[in-house]
Design a binder for these strands. Sequence first.
DNA 1: CGTTAGTTTGACCTAATTCAAATACTGTGG
DNA 2: CCACAGTATTTGAATTAGGTCAAACTAACG
Lengths: 220, 220
Amino acid sequence: MAHAQTIETADIRSWPSASGGPLLPAVGPRLTFSREAEIFGEGERSEHIYQVLGGVVRTCRFSSDGRRQIEDFHLAGEYFGLEMGPDHSCSAEAIGEVTVQLLKRSTLMELATRDVDVTRRLLELTMSSLARAQKHVDVLSRKGACERVAAFLLDFADRSGAAAFVDLPMSRQEIGDYLGLTIETVSRTFTQLEADRLIGLADRRRVVLRNREQLLTYRA
Amino acid sequence: MAHAQTIETADIRSWPSASGGPLLPAVGPRLTFSREAEIFGEGERSEHIYQVLGGVVRTCRFSSDGRRQIEDFHLAGEYFGLEMGPDHSCSAEAIGEVTVQLLKRSTLMELATRDVDVTRRLLELTMSSLARAQKHVDVLSRKGACERVAAFLLDFADRSGAAAFVDLPMSRQEIGDYLGLTIETVSRTFTQLEADRLIGLADRRRVVLRNREQLLTYRA
DNA sequence: CGTTAGTTTGACCTAATTCAAATACTGTGG
DNA sequence: CCACAGTATTTGAATTAGGTCAAACTAACG
């Protein structure tokens, strides 16, 4: 957890009001990480659960052949770092500057033995991660490059709240490592989607979803 | 749930002794399904959670283009059918004859509001499903056909308890639908792994793992 | 046996990778 | 503001793993 800077230790009373959605008590400090900083590493002891407050985090795993598999990107509001075992099964890194809320695992687990709601929320959280992972399996399993990129763009747009405009914080390489494609194929696919008028590329990082309908059919 | 046959309604007192591992109280009947019978369908209301008592179950999803993605195979002792939403997000079907223990979801959830252990066990269960799904993502992401099949065989051997001998209950087509490969590629890969002395094919369904070491290196 | 479904094998094709090179950005110092 | 270095991205050409189509083979079962 290098380059981290403590901002504030949240009070245990910052428990979410009876709102829906999986929210957990912020039993830990906030930290800010700079671009490309490691938040935790694969194999490290898992002491905390994390909630993104600002920026985007990637969780990834490295194969013995040096390839990087990005499990997921995590946007503001989302949680990451939940583990079953004692160690982190993947590493987490900041894409650009990132602020996270730490939740001490032991405290949370202790709370969970007394408060069923905490356990229930952990369960909801884990189940939605599972649903995402299964969708990821579907996409990787037998979809072509266009469908993968289309599914990624739509998912990312939905999650970042923007209707038809995405500001991608991650590189082409990172998209490739998420979608199981090479950087060249990702690049060519963007080019082709633009040629087909399905997207517009204002900037290399700013994508306009021109034809949501048709992009959607790709991800079926 | 066609072709199902009730065998016995388990007593709620069949709560697992203080053993480790994710075990849940069997609050529901046992059912037996015949070969290829549907246990539940995608989109159906999710009323139960299931534990396999005997046989192997596949959970799968169908793309609009008619392709089948098998999410996972479930062996004796394993659970399936946990959902976050009200409906099943995939269907479950019997491979060969299968006996399952049903756990009524509403009863389980009611139990969970009173007993933290139940919720904790549901959490453990979901987390191990998540870990499996993430491993599946890794395999599908950038591995070749040999590595996929090798990873599948090793995983299946480990889970069925056999050290170096696997009796596959599923067809080549099903393996393909699980690994994101065509039946032809799966077949060719088996042939090649045998030619390379990594496996032996007694019967089409009986595989001997001749060289566990080398198979392992494939899945790194 | 004959029929059927599952599997293997072969020939060819396509999508994506690889290798290589050109181009476009970003930030820095002048 | 411009030139430069370094990185990210795009584009091109050649290669290849896996898919597709088609046919032969095998096992199971009446």
